[in-house]
């Protein structure tokens, strides 16, 4: 177990290094010039040149990258070009909003997804199953921004139940979390359904039923724990995706999370922030997968022996 963990940790560091290298080279190679962006439209060539030197952008790619890595190892993500603040500080300031939305979104999608998935599996082939699966299909095919705008239109603009945008109270979380949750639930429902169907066909379930246990007890105590593994793995993946990938939802709802920070930075070609967010997100994706893999043997003892 300890050796496996050590190997996974080394692997994770290598992957992070790779992500850093690729992002760095991409941002370097792309035709955007952060110095010109910062200097503004009317700046002279001399001003642009000065800014470039000041930011170290006149150095060769390798020198720049090594300097970045050197700082990264010490936990220093550099300073934002435009805001002059430490990138780590900027990201940390967005963390509460991002984590709140992540937790709420995952709660909604797991709750909806599991409920519908189980209901569908228990009514396999029936009308309810078909309805749930059709809804799940619609859920996985719906564009995030359209759902976000529709919820905004119905529940904020028309009914005024929730605020249009912003952050701070519980009411602000509802619509963004619903957007993420409704869309994610489709995947969870499909996965939970097929996992449940697999389990429900197994002998020990028949035994449990034959023993005379109530239907609810069989489903919740015997079947569900055996079907929950893929769901846990999926939550692990989602943690990573939500860490850097909710740009759209945060943009529509004016949610001050990491996605919004990234989106503003992308428009200003603020490379240190883009790098920082990409690395944070990759870190979260790796961590999410790792945690899911570590939790799996705790839920399912069969994995432990392998």
């Amino acid at each position: 177990m300890a050796r496996l963990l050590a190997r996974r940790l080394v692997q994770s560091c290598l992957i992070l290094f790779g992500v850093a290298a690729i992002t760095f080279v991409l941002l370097y190679a792309l035709p955007a010039d952060p110095a010109r962006m910062l200097a503004g439209r009317s700046a002279t060539a001399q001003t642009v040149e000065n800014i470039r030197r000041e930011l170290g952008l006149d150095q060769p790619l390798l020198t720049q990258f090594l300097a970045y890595l050197g700082n990264l190892v010490q936990g220093d993500l550099g300073r934002s070009y435009a805001q002059k603040t430490e990138v780590a500080t900027l990201i940390a300031a967005r963390l509460p909003a991002t984590l709140t939305l992540m937790a709420a979104g995952i709660f909604v999608e797991v709750l909806l997804g599991l409920t519908f998935g189980i209901v569908a599996a228990l009514n396999r082939g029936g009308a309810l199953d078909r309805f749930v699966m059709a809804s799940a299909f619609v859920g996985v095919s719906a564009p995030q921004f359209v759902v976000a705008l529709l919820l905004l239109y119905v529940f904020a603009a028309t009914l005024s139940w929730f605020p249009m945008s912003g952050y701070g109270t519980a009411a602000h979380v509802v619509l963004p979390a619903m957007t993420l949750g409704i869309l994610g639930a489709g995947w969870y429902a499909r996965m939970a359904r097929s996992a449940m169907i697999d389990v429900l066909n197994q002998d020990f379930i028949r035994t449990a039923r034959a023993k005379g246990l109530s239907g609810r007890r069989v489903v919740l105590r015997h079947a569900l724990p055996n079907a929950i593994l893929p769901v846990v793995a999926m939550i692990g993946i989602d943690i990573g995706q939500f860490m850097g990938g909710v740009v759209v939802v945060e943009a529509v709802y004016g949610w001050p999370g990491i996605g919004q920070l990234a989106w503003q930075a992308i428009q200003q070609v603020d490379i240190p922030i883009i790098m920082g967010v990409t690395l944070t997100s990759a870190f979260a994706i790796i961590l999410g997968n790792l945690v899911a893999d570590l939790i799996a043997p705790m839920i399912d003892p069969r994995i432990r022996s392998h």
Binding site: I22, V247, T278, A282
Partner: peptide, 13 residues
Amino acid sequence: LMMAFPALLLAIV
């Protein structure tokens, strides 16, 4: 490595 990349973020950048 590409699997660990935040795909949407990469596309947006």
